[in-house]
Structures are given as C-alpha cells and as structure tokens.
Design a protein around this nucleic acid. Structure first.
Lengths: 199, 199
DNA sequence: ACCTGAACACCGTTCAAGT
DNA sequence: ACCTGAACACCGTTCAAGT
C-alpha cells in the first residue's frame, strides 16, 4: 500500500527529475499526489525537509546498486572501475538527483548522514581490497578514496554543465578520466597499465 | 565614473556572496543600487542575464589572477601547483561565485564563453610547459588538463558541502589531493615525488 | 490525525506612463 | 534613453476550520 507520505515523496522525485529543485513546488507536488496545496506540510516540516527525504531515499537506492555492482565484478580492480563508471552513468542520467544528494546534510540528523557514510565505507573497503591484492600502489585507503571520489565527482559536474567535451583531440569524458587515474594508481609494472598506455 | 549598469552589477555580486543566487532578487539589487524595483530590466534582459554578466566579470578577474600567479612562479611544476592551490583558496572563499562560473553558458553568446576558453588555454599551456620540461610524464596536454581540473573541481565541490573533511586519519583537503595527483603525474624518478611520498 | 480554503509576504516579469 | 508605480501570476508558509 502506498501511504500519503510515499505518494508525496514520489511526486517530488518526479518533479525533481523534470525541472530541478526549483521545479519542486509544494503546490505541484500536492497536485500530482491528489492533495490540497499544503497537505505536504502535514508530512514534512518544509520544502527543504521534503527534498532531504527524497535525497535519503535515493541514497539508499544507490547504496544497494553499488553493492550489486561489487558482487558481480570479477576482480577488485575492475570492481572499482565498474563502480565509478556506474556512478557516472547514474549521475548523467539523473543530474538533479546527483546534485541533490551531494548537497548539505548538516541540518538533518536524519538517516541521510549515516546512509552516505555507509556507501562511503563500501567504497573505501573496495579500495582496501584492491590495495591488499597489490593492484594499487601503497598508500592510505581513505586518502585514495577521496582522490578517486573527487575526480569522479568533478568530472561529472563539469560534464553536466558542458565544460568537458570541448575538444576533438584530448576528448575526455568522465569514464576516460577515471580510467586514467586508476592507471596512475596501479603499480607501474602492471600489464593492464602498459596495455592502456599504448592505445 | 560608475555607470548605473556597474552599480547594478556590483550590487548583484554583493548579494550573491551573501545569500547565493536565490538571494539575488532583482528587487534587492535595485534597492542597493538606489533604483526602483524593476530598473534592472532596462540594463539586463532578465535575472539570468544579470547573473551571466556577474559570471563574465568574475571570470575575467580570475583569468588575470591566474596570469599573475604564473608570472611569479619559479618553475613550471610549482607554477601549476600554485595555480590550483590559488583556485582552491578563491573557491572556498567565494563559493557562490565558484558555482556560478561553472554553471551553464550555452544560452549566452556573450563573451562568457570566450573568457572561459581563454583561462582554460592558459591552464593547458602551463601543463604543456611542465611536460616539455620533462616534469610530467608523457601524454596529451588537453587530457591531463581535464584530469587535473576535474579533480580540483570535484574536491572543491565536495569540500564546500562538507563531504571531504570527514576523517582524522586520511584527512584530505583539496590542496592535499591536488598534490597527490601532481605527484602521480610526475615521473617516478623525480626526487620531489620521493620526498612527498616519504612524509 | 489528516485535510481544506483563505490569507500574507515575497518574487519575477510586464505594461502604461512619466522626464 | 532611463526611470517609476501599478498590476499579474506564482510560490512558501501560516492559520482557522472542518472530518
């Protein structure tokens, strides 16, 4: 059964995808859910709280998707690569969800923070596995996670606003850049790296 | 002499820094500039065009600042490093200008696009210099520029929303991550790299 | 508990005038 | 050319009632 709260939440998600956070007006949300224009206030404190709930829901979905990708991967390094590529595909398809999720959570003692922490740990863990197998040069796992996450995040953000696909020669989409960084992180002797380099 | 257009522009910049793009109401802008609430419409087509003008102005200022940093640097590699660190400092201090500048320009055949292209070229050029001096491993300059720019952009964006400084151990701020990537890009034999690694 | 309708303050934008 | 004041549609939010 779909509770009123759920139908409000899914209406908000729908509007978010179509028109971004500014397009998520409480009036439109209520209308889609078949309610009066201020019924949402009975379920969420205000617009910000509604968007935070949408973010929390999407974040949990992403965490499950990441776990599924990890489960299917052959080796730790390709698992890492698939994880990032999958993240890129999701972000390019749902740009407003991507930007919403990476906004500020400070004000919400919700499960939003812990859901994010869980997916982050999953990511750090998969780096730790690749490193302990000697597929990545020595270093701090948290630090390497921050490096790879920052690159992925920045490449996506730039690509979404059309600041990456500019040129013909050094054509660089987010997935290419992620591969570049993973190659840099892999030990110099790695045959996979040599193969990539020679292309 | 400060034209009316200039005073509108600087009022908009002031409001942007204080309260973000949503805080830049045309009414508040006009009030600060000492004009009636819709006088801005005589100088800018709409709110979006006003913000685009603010972005273009800031972008030119940034280009000049970057050129100044490059002129002062000792060697090509430290020039690159200083460039990125300076970019981080600016972005952390003026987050709303940072986000505005990296938004979409498509709709504006203004000088916005060319100003951005000019600063990008400056950046690619400084990579080319470092590479031709053997301070960076072989590769495509545009591609390496995209890699370094994406990492910097992503690290800043994550840091601004509090998603980077999480931990005590692998503590990573944008400048640390930039240094990590530059070290990875530098030839393995480089003594500077060995020094950094051992810390 | 959950929902509705009226109301308030605010904002972007337009228009008819004014100088 | 540049500015003003009134007006319209829209939005977040609050409140007094309804069931």
């Amino acid at each position: 059964m779909a509770t009123t709260r759920d139908s409000i939440l899914s209406a908000a998600g729908e509007l978010l995808d179509q028109a971004g956070p500014d397009g998520v007006t409480l009036r439109a949300v209520a209308h889609i859910a078949g309610l009066s224009h201020n019924a949402p206030y009975k379920h969420f404190q205000d617009k910000e709280a509604l968007l935070a709930a949408v973010a929390a829901k999407e974040l949990r979905t992403r965490g499950a998707a990441m776990a599924a990708v990890l489960a299917k991967a052959a080796d730790p390094l390709s698992a890492l690569r698939r994880l990032m590529h999958d993240h890129v595909r999701w972000a390019m398809r749902y740009p407003h969800r991507f930007r919403l999720i990476f906004g500020r959570w400070d004000r919400y003692d919700d499960d939003l923070g812990e859901a994010a922490e869980a997916t982050r740990r999953l990511f750090v863990e998969s780096i730790a596995v690749a490193r302990s197998n000697g597929l990545i040069e020595p270093g701090d796992n948290e630090r390497t996670a921050a490096l790879l996450m920052s690159l992925t995040h920045g490449a996506i953000d730039l690509a979404l606003d059309g600041h990456l696909a500019a040129d013909g020669k050094g054509r660089s989409n987010p997935c290419d850049l992620i591969d570049d960084l993973i190659d840099l992180l892999a030990p110099a002797i790695s045959p996979a790296r040599a193969r990539r380099r020679s292309r």
